[in-house]
Amino acid sequence: MSEKKYRLNQYIAKSGVCSRRKADLLIQLKRINVNGSLITKLGYKVSENDIVELDGKKLIIQSFQYIVLNKPKGYITTVKDEKGRKTVMDLISHNLNKRMFPVGRLDKNTTGVLLLTNDGDLSQKLIHPKNKVEKMYHVFLNKKMKESDYNKIKKGFALDDGFIQVDKINVVNNSDQKELVLSLHSGRNRIVRRIFEFFTYKVIKLDRILFAGISKKKILRGKYRHLSKKEIGFLKMK
């Protein structure tokens, strides 16, 4: 029986290092060796018996892991922080976090749904702007939302880095117009906070309740669960 062959970028991605797109860049930057030889050909094929190295470190194909974390306030969304601050990886079992990384970012003071995986291709797919992945937030404001501002946000308006259009915005019942649920596809930096800051509101609490159809239902703050096969399949279809 012949050995299963992988394109080199696919093998690198399956090792959990990065996506296939970024793997191509590593190959072009002459950082990949196969069986002791430098490889720069993007379509080069390898098997599991070949020794593939990145900067001299052997890469091994990993089984993919997918989890959803209910992120608490005060944690940085990164694998490692140079200033020694708490990161979301501190909340994940050491048996899982060796190769895992967050899918996108949540601000330090933003809570809620955060996916983590070692599947670089899926991560790249979910955060790429062209795929327009939906995010839903529960927004708490410092003052009542004016109807005129609500209508402008609903209609869409221009920020300094371009036009922004939300998908849905609704005032939470019995919240005195200080709480809203907002859905959008944009992945721009701090976009939800910036939307309300534009209209002179301060976001005092921001909780992501949905990302790419995955919720934090029944997950305590600071805890996580593995995604089901159905959920993983749903994400890969996006």
Rank of each mutant, 00 (worst) to 15 (best):
S15D: 13
N118K: 09
M237T: 15
Q28A: 12
D160P: 15
K45P: 07
G104P: 06
V17H: 11
T87Q: 03
T77N: 03
I195V: 00
T111W: 03
E3S: 14
V192M: 02
G84D: 12
D50C: 07
K143L: 05
K5R: 05
T110F: 05
M145I: 04
Y75K: 08
K108R: 15
Q65R: 09
Q177I: 05
N151Q: 05
N131A: 14
K98H: 09
I209R: 02
R7F: 13
S37A: 13
H128L: 13
L210K: 13
L141I: 04
V103R: 14
L29C: 03
L116Y: 09
L116N: 10
V139C: 03
A158N: 02
K132D: 01
R208M: 01
G233R: 15
Y75T: 10
N118G: 07
I60Y: 13
L59H: 11
E48M: 12
Q28N: 12
N70D: 08
N95I: 07
H128Y: 14
K146V: 08
D176I: 13
K236L: 10
R7C: 10
K14N: 11
K125H: 14
K168R: 13
I195T: 01
D81I: 08
P72F: 00
K4Q: 06
I191V: 01
R208N: 02
V68Y: 06
T40P: 09
G162Y: 04
F157Y: 01
S15N: 04
L54H: 04
G156H: 03
K143Q: 04
Y11P: 04
K202N: 11
G222E: 12
F198H: 07
R193D: 00
E179C: 05
I12S: 06
L115G: 14
L182P: 09
S19A: 05
V192N: 00
P129D: 01
S15P: 08
D160V: 15
Q62E: 15
V17D: 09
K178S: 05
E82R: 08
K30S: 01
I164H: 02
I39G: 02
K4S: 08
G16R: 09
G16I: 06
T117L: 12
L59F: 10
I153R: 03
D176H: 12
G74F: 01
F163S: 09
L69Q: 04
K5C: 07
R31E: 05
R194D: 11
L96F: 14
S37W: 06
V68E: 11
S215R: 05
K86F: 10
L182E: 04
M237S: 15
K152V: 00
Q165G: 14
G213H: 02
F211H: 10
G43T: 13
D176W: 13
V68N: 10
F163P: 06
T200N: 12
D161K: 11
K4M: 07
L220F: 14
K14T: 03
S186A: 02
V79H: 03
N109F: 09
K144H: 10
D90G: 01
N173S: 12
V52W: 02
M89E: 01
L206K: 00
N174R: 15
L42C: 11
K125G: 07
L38M: 00
L122T: 09
K135F: 15
L126I: 12
M145L: 14
M136F: 07
S183Y: 04
I191H: 02
K132Y: 05
K236F: 06
V133N: 12
G43N: 14
K218N: 07
C18Q: 09
D107P: 14
M89G: 06
G43Q: 15
H128K: 15
H226M: 09
R188H: 00
I153H: 02
